[in-house]
Design a protein around this nucleic acid. Structure first.
Lengths: 233, 233
DNA sequence: TTGATTAATTGTACCGGTACAATTAATATG
DNA sequence: CATATTAATTGTACCGGTACAATTAATCAA
């Protein structure tokens, strides 16, 4: 494991365990260097990570501080790790509605950077939170990269399978949001009414080499969904 | 100006001007070092910035590549710079509905970390895009930090005024989203119907020293609004 | 005691370096 | 000619350092 990753994790745990509040001060850089026996730049890198995640902020000449009291009940749109944690934290379960190999829609083909004749694994599922329907999720996996999928894999963790099982390494994702009204079909799945609000989150996941392998479209139940993210100023 | 900032800007311009597409390769680190006459770590820092903004991605052993074809019409939720650019790009105008000094709501007081007796500048305005109403924006400024405001300042650029005029330095923001139905009043302002979808974006802006100075609640017209952001995996 | 000045603290920008992992190109091998 | 091996390319992790800006603490002056 990378040193700076490890340090970041440790610090986050430390904040959690000691129930540090917004504005509470962490040990100074010098101390952290000694404590973890690494150079300044390594600690700095760890702190950059935490800053990006919104966990701490740094003030030059002053110190390193805890950023906020956590708002509970919010789903992080920022990180996949975050989403995985969210799944556990909120006991989100899911049910696979459809799973097959097919040709992509124009939209999916465009976003996956493939042709309309190429094959994709199409997955449609519903996610539940506390028994309530949370969202409807449609995913298109580039079959030439994600060569095999089955219901069991999907129910477990696709991303785990992709990294561990297939030996691919996931790099980054682009995410697009928009709000609209539910269609009849969506409303039926989410147990809401046609025309009710929905949040649609489109994500294009890429491998480290930049190849898009998954285009997902998630339609959220507006009643259940609250999100948070960090802005970079 | 900071070297790495400058390099990041130059690279972004370069991509723009030369109309580079997704996957196009940029000069290698070594070349950039020589070209800008800086050390490796400075170039790296510039590239980290661009990566965070979603402009490029790097592949070790291979090179630095352009990340995506821009989706047009999307508002960036990630950066304030981005928002400023957005304002110009889309010719967004705004109209101030209310402006006064008052006591904060419980919510505002909590988010600004002040007491219910402290004063805030309250600003309510509508933003228009291509003549259409885009959003309704309510802001609460901690008056002990943002000591004076008037209609003119607001119509220009509040954030410019805060940095230039007041000499404060803006640090970071936390942002929360949720989707809901429009109230009667909101619907009236946005020229929509009660119960129509809305996206509510709450942002808490902080100074570099961590003090929150602005709590803003923006209600978006679902028809006009599309957003994008970058996920960190 | 108050206010200004100075000094110590602490994070950030930047340099220049080594080692190494992942990719790609070149070369050798069957 | 395909394939395995090796070498060159290229980005990332990490070190250790200097200079400096912003904050805070200590000191001094009135």
């Amino acid at each position: 494991m990378l040193k700076y990753q490890h340090i970041a994790d440790e610090l986050e745990n430390y904040i959690e365990e000691h129930k540090l509040q917004q504005g509470d001060k962490l040990p100074v850089l010098q101390d952290l260097m000694l404590q973890f026996d690494v150079s300044k730049s390594t600690v700095t890198k760890a702190l950059e990570l935490l800053e990006k995640k919104g966990v701490v902020f740094q003030v030059r000449g002053s110190g390193i501080f805890v950023r906020r009291h956590k708002r509970t009940g919010y789903i992080s749109l920022l990180s996949n790790q975050g989403f995985k944690k969210t799944l556990e934290e909120f006991q989100i379960t899911s049910e696979v509605i459809e799973l097959d190999v097919r040709k992509p829609t124009k939209e999916a083909a465009f976003n996956l950077n493939i042709s309309l004749n190429d094959d994709v694994y199409y997955v449609k599922r519903i996610r539940f939170i506390h028994g309530q329907t949370l969202c409807l999720e449609e995913s298109y996996f580039n079959k030439s990269l994600v060569t095999y999928l089955n219901k069991e894999i999907i129910t477990e963790s696709i991303f785990n399978y992709i990294t561990e099982g297939l030996g691919l390494s996931i790099g980054f994702a682009d995410t697009f949001l928009h709000v609209d009204k539910l269609t009849v079909e969506e409303a039926r799945y989410l147990a809401l009414k046609e025309g009710d609000p929905k949040l649609e989150v489109e994500s294009i996941f890429h491998l480290t080499n930049g190849q898009p392998f998954d285009f997902s479209k998630v339609t959220y139940n507006y009643v259940q969904s609250q999100f948070f993210l960090q802005a970079v100023l």
